[in-house]
Nucleic acid binder design. Structure first.
Lengths: 226, 226
DNA sequence: TCACGCATTTACACCTTTTTTACACTCACC
DNA sequence: GGTGAGTGTAAAAAAGGTGTAAATGCGTGA
């Protein structure tokens, strides 16, 4: 059975949409705020997230970006705001579809079906907790532990680790990592990467001098190997 | 590069959309009828199909159903007809998104990007792995193994191997290989090839002195024989 | 204000890869 | 049998990338 997470503050709409989705045979979870929505997304692991942009406690673009750092779950955005600019921003942030209020139930359900059809229930990408060796990383809570002992990572270290983990097995070029972690302007400071990868190895690898999980691809970049 | 197939009968709109998509770095193929569209979809294998429902020679629902019998390529439907019923029918037939004319270029492109983004990550799950003998090469992850043991290749070695594998069975001239791997300026250093082909044989062939997969074509170049 | 943590910079030793250089081998041809 | 073009190995020298440690700068909260 598919689970849909509904992030919406208006009780009336929640009730309305919930009934429609349940009629489709979906299980429905609800969240009233974006913060709560992110938590639910992590714990419930829904097959689809339906997000209202008009929530008081946060920006939809930010929500999607943070979600996308660890999950590929399809996101259907619903909003009363419907300027072209809004749509483009949130779609490019990683949302999959955008529906303008007021919408018809039929179309909503058809779009939900289309998204669910495509969605793969591949938990690998949607698991907020990544494990390797005796290390555990909780991407949403920003908690890292090694051998049951908490490990403190700085903001940059954590961001770098997140990007590497989100692309497990793949080689990420220096350029790509720098753009993701430091932003476009620093795409030529390869030194940064060496230093921060060294930090991560020091904190997470059993034998930092012979890394197993954080591998170097000389001349290319780095790779997280689970 | 992504290829988009545009199935649309109005010349003006084709020109308009083509320019927008090309501005995104997409290659664009065009079809004026649904029949032609299906043919092109089969031969071109685009990463995305943009379909106008208002074509004279057929029904969009039928088009999508027939397409879906053999292809999972994302379909973005565009139409002047915009009754809820139309949308639901074509979405349930297998289309992925529905945009009502007139639409803004910005939103169109954002939705195209969203669809391409998802199909790309879908494809990455099924990584193409080339096998020969007891050797496995994962081109996208840059991983090579022989008899289940990981084999380390340098950047140049991997690049050379990639080019050879991408043209399996065909002879590649010295000139061609040098231009692909080292760039145009080094197209006369045949020595390099001998050295690096030797490295690859040493690492991948069962009997490096009598190569089976990496063959020499004397006076011409090299060939990868699967 | 001060101490502290973190991002950034600097410095240096080390290692891998690339390029260069040298030499042995094959095989047709004279 | 010599010759020479094309090829395969094995080493060097050169170039460039990498890992570590420590110093600097900068903002924050005590």
């Amino acid at each position: 059975m598919n689970t849909v997470l509904l992030v919406e503050d208006e009780k009336e709409i929640r009730r309305f949409v919930r009934q429609a989705l349940q009629g489709e045979g979906c299980q429905v979870r609800e969240a009233e705020t974006m913060a709560q929505g992110l938590q639910e997304a992590a714990s419930v692991k829904p097959q689809l997230i339906m997000l209202d942009l008009g929530l008081p406690d946060g920006d939809g673009v930010d929500f999607v970006q943070r979600l996308r750092s660890w999950s590929q779950v399809p996101v259907l955005v619903v909003s009363a705001r419907s300027t072209e600019h809004d749509k483009i921003l949130v779609l490019d942030a990683g949302a999959d579809d955008y529906l303008t209020k007021p919408f018809s139930v039929g179309e909503l359900l058809a779009r939900v079906r289309a998204l669910l059809r495509r969605s793969r229930t591949d938990n690998e990408l949607t698991t907020p907790v990544v494990q390797f060796g005796n290390v555990e990383v909780d991407l949403t809570r920003r908690l890292v532990s090694k051998a049951q002992q908490p490990v403190h990572l700085t903001a940059m270290e954590f961001k770098l680790l997140s990007v590497l983990l989100a692309n497990a097995g793949r080689v990420l070029t220096h350029r790509h990592l720098l753009r993701e972690v430091w932003g476009g302007t620093h795409s030529d400071h390869n030194h940064y990467l060496r230093i921060y990868v060294a930090h991560l190895r020091q904190k997470l690898e059993d034998n930092p001098t012979q890394p197993v999980y954080l591998q170097t691809e000389i001349g290319v970049g780095y790779r997280f190997q689970p």
